[in-house]
């Protein structure tokens, strides 16, 4: 998996992180680290471009879930503790809003979207098919 980052000079400022390749057990920690670095350098509104991500496993879902929490400023899980730690942690996100305000998804491929729907992610994280609309929604 590779990623590219694009910072937009919008108000509020939006960062687009494009994921290229499979998001699975071999790559999800790399995605989390990238989100942590972006948050540390000031990113508060993140649009994840999934248009070039053909495969996502349940570990990839954990990665996305963790990225959402990182954008809330929550302490990221201890990566040294590995999967079992990530599996068990909970976090303090606001549970009252419908869609997450800080992290949104752009153009998941149909197979990835099917996984997002099946696991209930689409009721939590908003999905857009148009980049301009997605950016303007923050």
């Amino acid at each position: 998996m590779n990623t590219t980052v694009e910072q937009l000079e919008t108000t509020p400022s939006v960062t687009i992180l494009k994921i290229q390749g499979d998001l699975d057990g071999s790559s999800y920690q790399s995605l989390i680290r990238q989100a942590q670095e972006l948050y540390a350098s000031g990113t508060r509104h993140l649009l994840l471009d999934l248009s070039e991500m053909p495969f996502m496993s349940s570990a990839g879902l954990v990665g996305l879930h963790t990225v959402v929490t990182v954008m809330h400023g929550d302490q990221p899980p201890d990566m040294e503790g590995g999967w079992s730690v990530i599996h068990e942690i909970t976090h303090s996100m606001d549970s009252t809003s419908d869609f997450d305000p800080y992290c949104k998804l752009l153009n998941p491929q149909p197979r990835v979207e099917k996984t997002l729907e099946m696991t209930g992610f689409t009721s939590i994280v908003e999905i857009f098919t148009d980049r301009e609309t997605a950016v303007a929604s923050f």
């Binding site: 879902l61 954990v62 879930h65 959402v68 599996h87 068990e88 909970t90 976090h91």
Partner: peptide, 8 residues
């Protein structure tokens, strides 16, 4: 809701 979900 996401806040109440376990990871994984």
């Amino acid at each position: 809701p996401l806040a109440l979900r376990p990871f994984g």
